[in-house]
């Protein structure tokens, strides 16, 4: 639990990328220019968050097998890119990618920590909920992850990394918060729809309500990086944003183009938010009773759980 006061805010950059479909090498080169732009800022960000499928585009169908990389390779490519333009300047990088691991394919996101001496893969999250309905067809090509893990980011402290539909199931960010997460970082690719809203697509408004609700209920920061650009007529809705632990929208990008969204956050706002709205503490107290309800689906035994 981090409780010490923070002398300066943490500097975040959400990179709302607009990749060309399947053009990994070309997109990596474009990211190099973005990294150079960020590294040249007076106060360069300490954490970069890129969207889901940031360097390939989202709707790949069977081409996912051609674009997938191992986490180690993807991490090496990203870290090399940063070191090329920023030298040994420390940074943490989060990005979504299609992962291959021993013949299985996942929709994953990697969290890298680069310091003067080394690059570490702090975490790889494999998307739990693979939308396979309507316009989506993920589970035809990909395997599911099966764990919500909380890990220590040097910058943010206890953090969870979730992908897109993962956060539409309120249970998932709840588990992350119960496991100690103070920040939830969400790379995403959200095709926009719904034209009967007020001044924006309905799906954009729903995402915002959802993310603000997560932040407010659990008293945690939510950092959301959304993919931008059209993919075969389906427009990704960007709208990358940073939300404070009281649900305040700190900054949000427009839906429709590539950009860099900057945010500065005081992590000790979490203590304040949780003291003023202690829902997470209340849940901890009642959760054992809720989970012992015999009408709930039976929990799998450990032996039944499939490996990641």
């Amino acid at each position: 639990m981090q409780s010490d006061s923070q002398a300066a805010p943490a500097r975040i950059a959400l990179v709302q990328s607009k990749p060309r479909k399947g053009a990994y090498v070309e997109n990596l080169a474009a990211l190099r220019a973005v990294f150079a732009q960020l590294a040249a800022l007076d106060a360069p960000p300490q954490l970069l968050v890129l969207p889901e499928a940031a360097l390939t585009g989202y709707f790949l169908e069977g081409a996912v097998y051609e674009s997938a990389r191992s986490a180690e390779r993807f991490g090496h490519e990203l870290s090399s890119l940063w070191r090329d333009v920023a030298g040994q300047r420390p940074v943490e990088i989060v990005a979504g990618f299609y992962e291959v691991d021993n013949g299985s394919y996942y929709n994953s996101a990697i969290w890298l920590a680069l310091d003067e001496r080394e690059t570490r893969i702090l975490h790889v999250h494999r998307k739990l909920f693979l939308p396979t309905y309507g316009v989506f067809d993920e589970e035809r090509f990909l395997s599911r992850g099966n764990r919500v893990q909380v890990f220590e980011s040097p910058l943010l402290g206890a953090t969870a990394l979730l992908i897109c539909e993962d956060v539409w199931h309120s249970m998932v960010p709840t588990i992350a918060a119960l496991k100690g997460a103070r920040s939830i970082v969400v790379p995403s690719a959200a095709p926009g729809r719904g034209i009967d809203g007020e001044g924006e697509l309905v799906s954009v408004a729903r995402w915002r309500e959802l993310l603000r609700g997560i932040a407010m209920e659990h008293g945690c920061f939510v950092l959301y990086a959304g993919l931008a650009g059209f993919e075969g007529g389906k427009g990704m809705t960007g709208s990358s944003c940073a939300i404070g632990p009281d649900g305040t929208m700190l900054v949000q990008a427009d839906a429709d183009d590539a950009c860099i969204v900057r945010a500065e956050i005081f992590l000790d706002d979490v203590e304040i938010a949780r003291a003023n709205l202690p829902l997470l503490g209340d849940l901890r107290a009642v959760l054992p009773d809720l989970l012992s309800d015999e009408e709930l689906p039976r929990l799998r035994g450990r032996d039944d759980a499939s490996g990641c």
């Binding site: 990179v15 973005v34 940073a242 900054v251 949000q252 945010a263």
Partner: peptide, 11 residues
């Protein structure tokens, strides 16, 4: 160069 979206000036 990508456009940069900054939060409202902190006051």
């Amino acid at each position: 160069m990508l456009p940069v979206v900054d939060p409202p000036q902190r006051d």
